[in-house]
Each structure stands twice: as structure tokens, then as C-alpha cells.
Design a protein around this nucleic acid. Structure first.
Lengths: 225, 225
DNA sequence: TCAAAAGTGTTGTGTGTACACCCATGT
DNA sequence: ACATGGGTGTACACACAACACTTTTGA
């Protein structure tokens, strides 16, 4: 293992892009850096991988430590290793992509972060490192995943109306969808089941509540912390 | 950067799964290890990322050094970081996925590798590290890419017949395709253009030669070394 | 009774699939 | 002349897109 002695090993970090949908906005979790470099700048949560720690575990741990978020859909996104991406020296980061449902959106800052907040993807602040690029990459993946998989359910509470589900698609694709066609498609796929319950205390006709059918949950590939 | 002093950084490597199609077989490039661990075992080409070297460059360099292969389609596949994946200690590897056309398949072993050879994916030897898993992952990606993109052309010489193109799809998907439907689809997509030339010295009706149309090449996202 | 969102079908268009025979060349 | 792969069209099923009105509740 000659190289270990010739070259200093790079640092290895994980960084996580967490998306949620609140109201009519797609949001990303950001934390404000407490220390240099980029002190005071907003960045996506992340940090160093520990000795003997699997990468997925590191991502879950950092997310919990920096934002108090847990138990969410998480998948590896891409690895960024440009030699100049961190002013401190060579840092290779394995970026993760995460989704959380809008009823669990309480962020809490912690030791390494001065503050933690949700930002609309349409109004991101100036970001540290190459995190703008990473979020851009994650957005692409999100659209892509939504089109070909059933991850949209990760962005909703356990019970939801078809209109709420449709809204998730509309927000992420940035265009309106025909209500009848959307419902026909979703119902024909058999990926949702009625709960029998309805929305309450709404100033209009109450909507049927659905849940993602368990049979499809197990087919979906995901990592849960 | 406290962690740098508390934890020893992992080693960072790149490993490349190179596919090609020869005759009726999908093949992967493997090299035989010259040194421990796994001395004498076959593995996919790869090695340590150098200081100040971008990850993509490291992949291209290792591929050239270990197999004499260059100028091919290359994309990042996935990062494997299980703490036990290398018996020497923590090694995080960024796996790459590469395609090469069958007219450039001369492998040449070099310093770090005792031997370099193409193996049919249907007859792989026992592999070192977690390389069997990495190849499995690459195979999934290959099928997937073939379905949704035009990377199939990377596996063919610049001029090819529609039958050759069809064969690539059949080999990778492992099933036969209707000739008329295949041609209709490919031609309607407008991704190939006639060269005007035909195959020569064949003991049957000569076939029209096509090339991938330049207009689509530039849309295809790829990294060339 | 009004406002507001829920819910519901039909029709045309395009895409994928199944299927069989003649053509051009070398031997 | 024959063997070998090259090359071609039609018909049916299914998925997607466009489109407007009635229903149920709370205020």
C-alpha cells in the first residue's frame, strides 16, 4: 500500500440534500456554519465520516446531529472530489439525497451549526463550498426519481389526499397536471389504498384519505435510519 | 477541521468497470493482482487517487495504466465505503462505469497488474474485494442506461449496421427483439444517419452502414479522456 | 345560497407489439 | 441454385392527453 505513505489521504465527508414540500414550496434544509471556512454561510448539513463508520450511517448521523431529522428516505447521490472544492485541503464528499414528509419538519441546530432552517429552492441564499452545484444535482435526481419511482410518498404524511399527492408532482415538475388523468393513473397503478377516512373541518367537500400501499413500500428501494 | 487530527483519513481509490461487446458476449476488463491482498486474484482495474487529482482523471489514469485503454465513455457509478471492504484498512472507493467499442479491445497489463483480460460476464472468476458487487451494480446501470439513453453507440465502432446495434441490445437485455420494430424505433428517433457505405465481403446481402448522428452526440452527457 | 375544492368519463392520438415474406450477395 | 442474413408494412391493443360539469361541505 505504497501510496498511503507517499500521498496524504484526502478527508472524506458526507453531505446531505434534504427536500421537503411545505404548502406550495419545495424546500431544502440548510445549516449556518459556525466555524471557518465559510463561517456564517449557509450550507447543506454534513461532516466527516468516522473511522469504522459506513457511509450511509455517517449521513444519517450528521443529519440527526445537525438538524434533528431522522427516519427518512436516504440514498447516495454522487461523489464530489474536485481538489479545490474545500479551501482547507483535499476533501472528497459523498453527497446524499433525502426526502422527508412535511409533518416532520422541525429542524434544530446543534453543536457544529449556528442555525438550521428550510429554504425554498426558488430563494436559496449564497452557499458555501460547491453546495449550490450539489443541490442542483439533487434537484435533477428528484425530478427523475419522481417520474420513474414512487418516492413522492416520502414527501407526504402517512395519510394524504390525491390532491395533495398531485400538488407534490406539480411543485416539483413546475407545471400543472390534469386532475382526472392524474387520478386515473395513480389509481390504475394500484399504489395507493383508501383508508376510509376523510379530511375534516374543511370549508368544502371533504376529500378521501389514502395511504401508500404496503405492498409497494417493500418494493421501493430505500434506506431507513 | 478537528476530525483530521482525531481520525486517520480513509484511503480513497477509484475502480472502473469497463464493458465491451465482443461477438455475442458482454465482457468486463479484469486485471490479476500482483501484490497482497488478494494476490493472484482477478479484480477490476483501479487504484489510489493522487493528491490534487480530480476523481475522473484518476479513473482515466488508472484505466490507462492498468489496461492501456483510453478515450472511452466514462461516468461515476457509486461510492463503496464499507469499513471492512479492504483488509488493509479503511478504503473508500469511487466506482466508475465505462464503455468501449469492440474494435479497441487490446488490453495490456502493466506495473501493478500481472495480467489484464476480458471476461464474459457470464463466466467471471472469483473476484477480490467487493468487486463482484460493484460489477453487479454496473450491470444494472448498463441496462438502465441502454433503456433510457443512447450509450449503446459507445459499444460499437463508428460505423455499424442496424443488426449490430440490435445485437448489443439483445445481449445486454438478454432477450431477442423484433427486427422490424427495432429498426422502426431507431430510425424514427433520428439518432442514426446513413453513411452511404455498405458492408463488404459478406456471404449474403450487404448491409447499410450507419453512424450515430453528431447532433445527438453532443446532447449525450459523457466524459471523454 | 354561495364559495371552494372534490370527484367523475369519453374520445382522439400516438406508441408498442405481433407477425411473414422477398431481396441481394457469395459460394 | 441455394444458403445467409438484409430489409420491409399492417393491424391491434394500450397508454396518454384534452376537455367540463356535478357533488359535498362550511360559512
Amino acid at each position: 500500500m505504497a501510496h498511503q505513505y507517499i500521498y496524504e489521504n484526502p478527508s472524506v465527508t458526507v453531505d446531505i440534500v434534504v427536500f421537503t414540500v411545505v404548502g406550495e414550496d419545495l424546500k431544502v434544509a440548510l445549516v449556518k456554519r459556525k466555524y471557518a471556512p465559510f463561517r456564517g454561510r449557509w450550507v447543506i448539513p454534513g461532516g466527516f465520516v468516522r473511522a469504522n463508520e459506513p457511509l450511509d450511517d455517517a449521513a444519517k448521523r450528521e443529519l440527526l446531529e445537525e438538524t434533528n431529522v431522522k427516519g427518512i428516505y436516504l440514498e447516495q447521490l454522487y461523489t464530489f472530489g474536485d481538489p479545490k472544492r474545500d479551501p482547507r485541503g483535499r476533501v472528497v464528499t459523498i453527497a446524499y439525497f433525502a426526502l422527508i414528509n412535511s409533518s416532520n419538519v422541525n429542524l434544530r441546530a446543534s453543536s457544529d451549526a449556528a442555525e438550521a432552517r428550510w429554504f425554498s429552492v426558488k430563494g436559496l441564499p449564497e452557499l458555501g463550498f460547491d453546495h449550490k452545484k450539489i443541490i442542483g444535482y439533487a434537484l435533477q435526481r428528484l425530478k427523475y426519481k419522481l417520474e420513474y419511482t414512487t418516492v413522492a410518498f416520502q414527501l407526504l404524511p402517512r395519510e394524504f389526499t390525491l390532491t395533495e399527492l398531485q400538488l407534490v408532482y406539480e411543485i416539483i415538475f413546475g407545471k400543472t397536471i390534469d386532475k382526472r388523468n392524474f387520478r386515473k393513473k395513480i389509481l390504475s397503478l394500484g399504489i395507493v389504498e383508501e383508508t376510509g377516512r376523510k379530511t375534516e373541518d374543511v370549508a368544502h367537500r371533504p376529500a378521501q384519505l389514502y395511504r401508500f400501499s404496503r405492498r409497494h413500500m417493500i418494493l421501493d428501494n430505500f434506506i431507513r435510519s
